[in-house]
Design a protein around this nucleic acid. Sequence first.
DNA 1: ATGCCAAGTTATACTTGA
Length: 273
Amino acid sequence: MAYGDGVRLATWNVNSLRSRLERVVEWLGTADVDVVALQETKVADDKFPVMAFEAAGYEIAYHGLNQWNGVAVASRVGLRDVEVGFPGVPVFGDPAVAEARAMGATCAGVRLWSLYVPNGRTVADPHYAYKLEWLKALREAAAGWTAAAPDQPLALVGDWNIAPSDDDVWDPSVFTDTHVTPAEREALQAFLDGGFRDVVLPVTGPGVFSYWDYQQLAFPKKRGMRIDLVLGNQAFASRVSHAFVDRDQRKPKGSTTGQGPSDHAPVVVELDG
DNA sequence: ATGCCAAGTTATACTTGA
């Protein structure tokens, strides 16, 4: 494991696992990651690249219904009690289904939820109301988890699709729709009010982004957002020894595979043993 | 140069993303 007895956890919206498989698996090794929560795998379960993870020494749990969404957890420190979705999760689409946006697993004693919060699209779109309902259902489920096992380290990690404050976008004046609305920020704040903590922000300080649009040279121009978050309960947060965003993984080159980047970078958290 | 958007589908345009 990383750093002696510690555990190194990460979350990464990969924007299609199959199109970036070599880059992702190679990164697990070079970054010495014990557990990674993946989002936007964009692969149905029957096409999931299981072998690539197992060959690299990771157990893998995954959930994908089709080419959209999709979440997974890979671990080389144990993987058990896998749960797909959470109680009360709202449905969306036609036909309306519970989308592949959440799965839980316990790795090295940490209860981890890989989350891909709905985008919201625009405030006027039904997807926005769905986003808020989804967050409310998650908060209620998470309150139950932490009440049932207050000493169990629990982390809600993934692409929250919310910039918690104006510090979390490169220019607040250009964000006028979803991701920054008071209702979304209040939905996120409700988790903090419920005892969860953003464990990355205190370590990195503000302005350390995790997402940059593919368009208009957003990455080299540092026009990003901080929307990939690690929220831990007290038992988790008290063990965090370090955290960082691996922005090198947003670069188009630098990997021996030559595969292009996701528009998100991995967020890494290290726990004391 | 990190360099002007990418992935998936059963399409050869469209949806989705944030």
